[in-house]
Amino acid sequence: MHTGAPARVIATDAARAFLAEIRQDHPNVLIHQSGGCCDGSSPMCYPSAAFRIGDSDVKLGEIDGVAIYISGPQFEAWRRTQLILDVVPGRGGMFSLDNGRERRFLARARAFSDEEVFALDGKAP
């Protein structure tokens, strides 16, 4: 990433507050965005020690000290977008720590401008 590059991942205030709530029960967590179907399409929150980062997973950044990862194939599909971690009403994924809290994480996205893509990748889009 080049100087002045935008963050690949950001979070809404609601997502930050929800993450802080989860961390009261589980201090060391990470979030993983996979490209699967159903539950796998949502950002999933796991205890850091219970989730194995794959060789192709890409770290997008951190939100309040929590690492945010995305699967390699999903990163390639979303490479030109900023992931925005948000929260909506509903049930979290079966194994995600947001499950049972009547709210769940949701990934939104914003397309990077050509200038932002250049700042991130160092080459013209």
Rank of each mutant, 00 (worst) to 15 (best):
M1G: 12
A5L: 04
P6M: 01
P6S: 01
A7N: 05
R8T: 14
R8Q: 14
A11M: 07
A11C: 10
A15T: 13
R16V: 06
A17Q: 12
F18P: 05
E21T: 07
I22P: 00
I22H: 03
Q24V: 15
D25S: 08
P27Y: 04
P27I: 00
P27A: 06
N28H: 05
V29G: 00
V29Y: 00
L30G: 04
L30K: 08
I31G: 07
H32I: 00
Q33D: 00
S34G: 09
C37F: 12
C38S: 15
S41I: 14
S42G: 05
P43S: 08
P43I: 05
M44L: 14
M44D: 14
C45V: 13
C45P: 02
C45N: 02
P47H: 13
P47K: 13
P47W: 09
A50Q: 08
A50P: 05
R52I: 15
I53R: 11
S56A: 09
S56V: 10
V58W: 06
K59V: 10
L60H: 07
L60C: 11
L60E: 13
G61W: 03
G61L: 02
G61R: 07
E62V: 13
G65L: 01
V66M: 00
V66L: 01
V66S: 06
A67P: 04
I68R: 06
Y69T: 14
Y69L: 13
S71I: 15
S71E: 15
G72V: 04
G72M: 02
P73R: 00
F75L: 13
F75Y: 15
F75S: 10
E76P: 05
E76T: 06
W78L: 14
R79H: 07
R80M: 03
R80E: 02
R80L: 04
T81F: 10
L83P: 02
I84G: 09
L85T: 08
V87Q: 13
V88K: 10
P89N: 03
P89Y: 04
G90N: 08
R91Q: 13
G93M: 08
F95M: 03
S96Y: 06
L97C: 09
L97M: 12
L97I: 10
N99K: 09
G100R: 02
R101L: 13
R101H: 12
R101G: 02
E102S: 10
R103Q: 12
F105H: 01
F105S: 08
F105Y: 02
L106C: 10
L106Y: 04
A109R: 08
A109E: 06
A109S: 09
A109M: 05
A109L: 04
R110K: 06
F112Q: 04
F112V: 00
D114V: 03
D114I: 03
E115F: 09
V117Q: 01
A119L: 03
G122M: 10
K123E: 15
K123G: 14
P125E: 03
P125R: 02
